[in-house]
Write a protein that binds this DNA or RNA. Sequence first.
DNA 1: CAGTGAGCGAGCTTCCGCTTGACTT
Length: 797
Amino acid sequence: MAKNLLIVESPAKAKTIEGYLGKDFLVKSSYGHIRDLVKTDDAIDVENNFEQKYEVPSDKKAVVSELKKLAKDAETVWLASDEDREGEAISWHLYETLSLKDDKTKRIVFHEITKPAIMRAIDEPRKIDYNLVNAQQARRVLDRLVGFELSPVLWKKVKPSLSAGRVQSVAVRLIVEREREINKFAAEASYKIVAQFLTGKGKEQFKAELPQRFDQKSDAETFLRDCIQAAFAVNSLEKKPAKRSPAAPFTTSTLQQEASRKLGFSVARTMQVAQRLYEAGRITYMRTDSVNLSDTAIQEAQQEIVNAYGEKYHKLRRYKTKSAGAQEAHEAIRPTYFSQHTIEGDHAERRLYELIWKRAIASQMSEAEFEKTTAKISVSTRREELVATGEVMRFDGFLKVYMESTDEESDNTNEQSGENALLPPLEKDQSLILKAMNATERFSRPPARYTEASLVKKLEELGIGRPSTYAPTISTIQNRGYVVKEDRDGRERRYTVLQIADDKVVEEIKTEMTGAERSKMFPTDIGVLVNDFLVEHFNDIIDYHFTAKVEKEFDEIAHGGKEWTTMLKDFYGPFHQGIQDTLEHADRASHERHLGTDPATGKPVSVRVGRFGPLVQIGSADDEEKPRFASLRKGQMIETITFEEAMDLFKLPKKVGLFEDKEMTVAIGRFGPYIRHASAFYSLPKGMDPMDVTEEDAIQIIQEKRQKDKEKVIRVFEENPDAQIENGRWGPFIRFGKQNVKIPKGTDVDKITYEDVLKWAEADPKGKAKAAAKTATAKKATTKKTTKKTSTAKSKK
DNA sequence: CAGTGAGCGAGCTTCCGCTTGACTT
């Protein structure tokens, strides 16, 4: 029996540490927290100093009983959970739950998993820090009180099953408020002047811009006209060295941002893949707020950089965390072995590892050095100067391995930036030949919508949430239906371009797409409704700075300067009063908006949130005639929909004619406009207005789709016409009734027999399960719907 | 991928932070 039992939070960590400590130590993991508040409303006794009822959740029972047994037999139990508030609480819960003895228990901490760090920790054991534990209790109790008192208010005043909390509600608020900023944003147009010059001798070309812009088209036109007969010369020439430094190694939040920008990963996917890399021993812990690297890591990175790129590429750097509320219990995210530039694994694992490796290596490399040249060009007829800039890299430094990307979209419109371009050799007073000049109308841009990752960044800046909760929070607000992540089409916008041609200024109108979004976070109507309700009645809790405020108090508790129950009492009194007042006095939340009167019937037109989502209604319930309803479409919201848009919703579905004795109907569904005929759906070609579809169009679309489907079929099996080989998006596959059967790699498609099909179909449990699930869920969904229908109806009262 | 759309009912929903599996969808 081992003399020492050492308990950490993560099993992967346990494995590593066991290797460092040898036979006398048995290293086990608690798998995070082992106890939590009971899930019922009596978990906290607010009358009695916020006394808590804890329980070991069922999925932790096995871990706890194993640890209990091992602890009983061990001479010394070492509690080595993380060095932060939560970690201290885990140690305390272990101490209590395992019934440990004070003289047999030692608390140790380390914030990097290296042998020297662990040996040092073992030499310096301490006791459980009850101030820190109390700070965690205050945090836990406050979150429970807020979540479990706010949510029921929403059930009563908005709709059942909704949720609110210190973190999620602020996340939703950020998105709602950003959407409103975008809605009220009015783009301002201005004219940007860009010129192309030729040098006199070599006839080399380069570009220059006017730094200032013209608000008025007439001013831009005048400028261009003045330039027609003007002489141009290099007025001044300046060369300046410039440097760029690498970014710090990854934290959870920065990893999520870069993986989103460079690899297109959702934050959940990034964390899944990182978890696999961590478990395989490829990277250090992936839930961290620290940018710190251990001394051994810094040395290994140095060795690797010097070996691979040479001494002058190395620069030792230590980074400091900037973000609020960082607890730094771990290292930054880095490769376990810097010598491994790449790894084995699936595509996602290899790419994420590479990103982590590059970022960590680059963080220990030299600055990149540039020479920036700025040439100012005089215009004989004007006082303004045009400016040409060029940048030459003198030394690549860290850019040899890593370039951080930004959130700025580069694909936006006709922006032709002259930055980073090379300039031909120029001399002061050299005269230049104007080759072309134009003034392009440009528009100011609204604030950017959040992506999952940029929302995480914002939350981190506000100190809201922790590395372990960023991804779950993003999921929660989507699962609750408060926000959606989706693509939205942009709209066309016209802009004016003025140009010098044949000594005249000519004008041209062009169009561009603007406002198109990919994978962005949009609030839903229910998200807006809940947010506005919370802001109205609980503004102090939903305030961006609420977390920062309470964190400060948790810190005071942790340092022994404040009693945790006092802090909670001060908070809970007014909070609970607010809950009661709201329950008693607040109206049911509704965002009903009256849009106007239907000219055809004279009935009122309004929008509101219905049981199945936002809808438009013509007529009222107490009218004799039943009101007419229509659902809002993707991108439409109660707050912003216009009367005309609302009335348009009643124009579809529209019957467009007959085909094969059956009606054809045009409508708009979740995937865009389509024609419904018999029981089949046919998408409209992109760009076709569903209102304009004629009978002939519809027939043609149906026939074309049928033809295309026919072309996809390679072979139908004689034995069973429900079995056929088709060309799919990723190559040939077998359609076998409802089941899609994969063709094994390397099979000659022409030689597949019906026996093969039966065999493969049988051997593909996933495909079978999927086919079965398809029918099962279809059934379930319908039954669920009907039960839900009655249930919500009941609770309405 | 549509259509639907308040009404009486019983009892349920819900927080944030630590950690991984054991399961299907």
